[in-house]
C-alpha cells in the first residue's frame, strides 16, 4: 500500500482523462489520492510526509533571523542596512503579544536617526513568522526594487532589518526616518508546503496609528508562488502609483494585475496571473 507524499503535481502533461485515483494529483498540489487503508486509515507514507511538512513549518516559525548574514547578503548587493528590534524579547512573547511586535525598542531610535531620509521610500525587512522567507527572498527583492525605483527617479532607502517584527513596526520605523513611505517585507505564516513565503506591505506616510486598510499587500512571494520578477514588477507599479497619488490602502486599487490578466485573455488555465490576489496568511504577521 504505497502513496507517494503529496507535493507539486507530477511532471508531464495531465492525462486526457484521469483513470487512476493518483491521476488527480496532476491537477492540484493538494494532498489528494493518498490511498486508504482499512475503513479510514491514512497509508504510512502519506502520514509521515505530512509530519515532515509540519515539522519544517514549525522549524521555520521558530527559526531566529540571522541578522549579520542578512546584512552581509544585502552588502554584497551594494545595500547598506541598520538593524532594529521590536519590544518582543523572544518568539513566545512575539506569538502571544502581537502589540509588542509592533512597537520599536526605543534603544534603536539613535540608529534610525543617523540614517534619516525625509521624503524617501524606506524598506523594513522583518522576520515576521518566517525568518527563512526573509533570508531567502528579501535581499534579491530589495535590490530589484531599489534598482527599479532608481530608474523611476524615486528616492529609495534606507534599508532597516528588524528582529521580532510585525507589519505595523514599519509605521514606527518609517516615522523615525521621516520617510514618505515604507515597504515592509516580512515572513508570512508558513503553510505545510510553503515555509518561505514573503509578504510585502506598502504604507504611505507611515506613522503610529495607521490601520490595515491604509496599506497595500502583495502576498505569497516565493519561487513557486508569485515569483520574484513578477513580485518586483507588481510592487514597483504599486509604489509608483502610491508616490504619484500620495495614498496607500483601499484608495489605491491594484489595477495593474487586472489589466495584465485581461491582456492575457483572463484564462483560468493560467493560474499564475491570479496568484498574487490570494489572501492566505494575511493578517498573521500584522
Amino acid at each position: 500500500m504505497s502513496a507517494p507524499p503529496a507535493g507539486p503535481p507530477p511532471a508531464g502533461p495531465p492525462p486526457a482523462g484521469p483513470r487512476l485515483w493518483r491521476d488527480l494529483r496532476h491537477f492540484t498540489a493538494a494532498r489528494v489520492a493518498l490511498g486508504r487503508v482499512g475503513a479510514a486509515g491514512l497509508p504510512t507514507p502519506a502520514h509521515l510526509a505530512f509530519q515532515a511538512a509540519h515539522a519544517a513549518a514549525r522549524d521555520a516559525v521558530h527559526a531566529a533571523l540571522d541578522g549579520p548574514a542578512l546584512a552581509a547578503d544585502l552588502a554584497a548587493r551594494g545595500i547598506a542596512s541598520v538593524t532594529v528590534r521590536s519590544l518582543a524579547p523572544d518568539r513566545r512573547s512575539y506569538l502571544l503579544r502581537p502589540d509588542l511586535g509592533r512597537m520599536l525598542d526605543p534603544a534603536c531610535l539613535p540608529a534610525l536617526d543617523a540614517v534619516r531620509a525625509p521624503g524617501s521610500v524606506a524598506f523594513l525587512l522583518a522576520d515576521g513568522l518566517s525568518a527563512l522567507a526573509v533570508a531567502r527572498h528579501a535581499p534579491a527583492l530589495t535590490a530589484a526594487l531599489i534598482a527599479g525605483l532608481g530608474r523611476a527617479g524615486i528616492a529609495a532607502g534606507p534599508v532597516v532589518l528588524a528582529h521580532q517584527g510585525r507589519v505595523a513596526l514599519g509605521d514606527k520605523v518609517g516615522a523615525a526616518l521621516g520617510a514618505a513611505a515604507i515597504v515592509v517585507l516580512i515572513g508570512e505564516r508558513p503553510g505545510l508546503s510553503t515555509a518561505d513565503s514573503l509578504g510585502a506591505y506598502l504604507t504611505w506616510a507611515p506613522q503610529p496609528g495607521r490601520n490595515d486598510a491604509e496599506r497595500n499587500c502583495v502576498s505569497n512571494i516565493r519561487p513557486e508562488g508569485l515569483d520574484l520578477p513578477d513580485a518586483a514588477a507588481k510592487l514597483l507599479w504599486l509604489i509608483a502609483a502610491m508616490c504619484e497619488r500620495r495614498i496607500s490602502g483601499v484608495g489605491l486599487k491594484d489595477e495593474q494585475p487586472m489589466a495584465a490578466r485581461l491582456a492575457a485573455g483572463g484564462h483560468p488555465e493560467k493560474p499564475a496571473s491570479r496568484a498574487a490576489d490570494a489572501f492566505p496568511r494575511i493578517g498573521d504577521s500584522r
Binding site: F27, T28, V32, E269, P271, A275
Partner: peptide
C-alpha cells in the same frame, strides 16, 4: 472543502472528486 490557491477549476474539481 476543495480549496485551490488560484481557484483553478481543474484543481478544485480534483479535490472535489477525491
Amino acid at each position: 472543502q476543495p480549496n485551490h490557491p488560484t481557484d483553478d477549476p481543474a484543481g478544485v474539481a480534483a479535490s472535489l472528486i477525491d
